[in-house]
Design a protein around this nucleic acid. Structure first.
Lengths: 207, 207, 207, 207
DNA sequence: GAATAAACGAGACGGTACGTCTCGTCTTATG
DNA sequence: CATAAGACGAGACGTACCGTCTCGTTTATTC
């Protein structure tokens, strides 16, 4: 007779529940403004106004502008993606590298760069970036590398370093701009990265 | 009555000459404040005050705060360094990599990161960074790579990509903080990077 | 040879001098907005915008909104006025009382009331009101009372109390609104106040 | 069909009755906070929290913060007091004046002043103050004055003005702070006020 | 005893003003 | 003419409080 279900409804707390609608409007507004104005040109006031929301509501749920932007961006970027079914390990690796390059080349790329730029001044934002965006992508790549090692396509080694060797050049070009992320890069880099991995993976620890 | 103008001093343009003393005081003050407060916590007003200099004097010689900071930093960092005389090409490569890691690990590392962070919002600063700091270091590494290729230690290939494979992971760790730049990294990474280069250098274009 | 004048020019300090134009525009804008919107409806942002001035400039010279309003009001109200030349002491007293009533009845009256209201929460504003507006008016009335005493029209006594008996009812009606400050009051009160003064002035201490 | 509503039991309506306990807790919390923080420093949120009550409960029963504060204050101040039995009219007058001075000198005085200050921006609060606090006190004083007139101690005249002459100086000192409400004032003012009344009462209308 | 109705706690919400901060430009008087 | 001092316009920031609202819960009266 006693209703059992209540015990299973932790989300039901006292007080007016958070407005999911506001949350979505805020993130949508942030996304739009970011696309139009970039990170620096997007003020919290503008987001609030565009979302038809009070500034206080934004600050109630996010500690600062960067956090909102981060979440807006995450809504527009799949943090990671599943391994291409049936593809062999190398193909999966290449696909992952290429998709990251494509992301960095897209309009989101500049926003990502802004966010990482801001993260240099905001440790919490940095942590959020690592947790929510970088982490999943690295995990995906790590799994792909493990499959490649298991398949004998790569020697075992320090996978974190291997990931850095793959992603490092992409981030460097995104953030430093010394060389373009262009068609040629998107075409050629994956194979070169794999070649590099073949040369080094495990080199430090193995033998 | 007018004393003979020091008409023969080459810097002699009309008016009071630029005060070299002010310039040095500004850069010194910037350096101190950066070390104490970081980039974001260092305001131009504070630099001016600490240097006993007018803000206008700063803006007369630098376009903005970032440029001052950049120059202050360059004064404290050798943009590049000569090849270790007599060392073989590989040793030189390793020394260069290691010195960059050491720089990133030092207190200057955070300031560098701040600067690159700020550069995401300031194209001129980004360009300055590339020209004055990144460029020389890349050039040094490029020359070392060329020597290695000439010595047969590496196959020829796209050297820009090769540089990215070496420096990219360093910048990634500096800016993303997902993994430490620690003793182990400083010890192991150079060899791994060389191994990677052996695997890839030119791999994409050669053959 | 030494220019002597410099010693007499204390206002000449280093740095860009305060913009008298901005100051005037701020006070004018405040005055206008007060007349249109009242004290509560006048925001600092609005004053800044109407004056074509940065908010920071306002806060550089006034500690808060109330202080600006106070000064704007003082510009529009003569803090005191000279004794009517040739008038006898009683006539001067009556004229002073009547002018204060007229002020309280005018549109400035409500603003004054707002200011005193705000002063209940801001000791510095209260002090400013006393110094700059209340003080001069009380001083004027005090002088008039002294003349009346000298002329034998009033007995000597505690003049501060006498002033309160004259001004107290005016402020009470302004601030409490329990009875109107209307034509009848403006007509009758001065004579009644004088009669009251004749009854009390010095009554407590004299004899 | 509809049964005769218990038309004669107004308090008995359907639904949960108002919690008298909440009401008391709210007023008590308001009183405490006012004493500690003053009016401006007392937020509705703080009252709600201190009372262990929802903000909505406050706003369900009072139109705004000022109204709560007013009621809290009224609970701590007798709006008026009966004539001292057997005392003669003048003694009653003096007692009333002195009790008002004592109230203004007490900690409640500052809160009263805050309330009047706030009332400059809130017509409903002003009206409430007049109705509930000022009115009764003025009525009491008016009755005492009428007794004094009837006893021949004062001449007839405009009693409202007479009340203002008595209370005006008190409010002026409370609200303007130009002179203290101190022991000397509490001792001397009543007699002076009476003397003033003897000089003026009815002066305008009599004869 | 069920249904209804209203008050309750918690707390999120829109609105709005506040006062602060830094940037990069400007306006003086001085050397 | 460069300089120190420092005021200026612009505009974002994050905070605070107000008074309203939306929940789920509690407590009465009414059927």
């Amino acid at each position: 007779m006693t209703p059992v279900r209540k015990a299973f409804c932790p989300p039901s707390r006292a007080g007016r529940p958070r407005s999911e609608r506001s949350r979505r409007k805020i993130l949508a507004a942030a996304d739009t403004l970011l696309a139009e104005q970039g990170f620096a040109g997007t003020s919290v006031d503008a987001i609030a106004q565009a979302a038809g929301v009070s500034k206080a509501t934004i600050y109630r749920w996010w500690p600062n502008k960067a956090a909102v932007v981060m979440e807006a961006l995450l809504g527009a970027i799949e943090a990671d993606f599943p391994a291409s079914a049936g593809a062999d390990a190398e193909e999966d690796l290449i696909a992952r590298i290429r998709r990251t390059i494509a992301l960095f080349r897209s309009p989101k790329g500049r926003i990502l760069a802004s966010l990482i730029g801001e993260a240099q001044f905001d440790p919490e934002l940095a942590e959020a970036y690592r947790q929510r965006l970088l982490g999943p992508r690295r995990a995906g790549l790590r799994a792909a590398l493990e499959r490649a090692v298991a398949a004998g396509a790569l020697r075992p080694g320090d996978l974190e370093l291997a990931i850095d060797i793959v992603y490092g050049p992409l981030y460097a070009r995104l953030l430093l701009g010394h060389a373009p992320l262009d068609d040629g890069f998107e075409r050629d880099f994956p194979a070169i990265a794999l070649a590099a991995l073949r040369g080094c993976a495990g080199g430090a620890t193995e033998r």
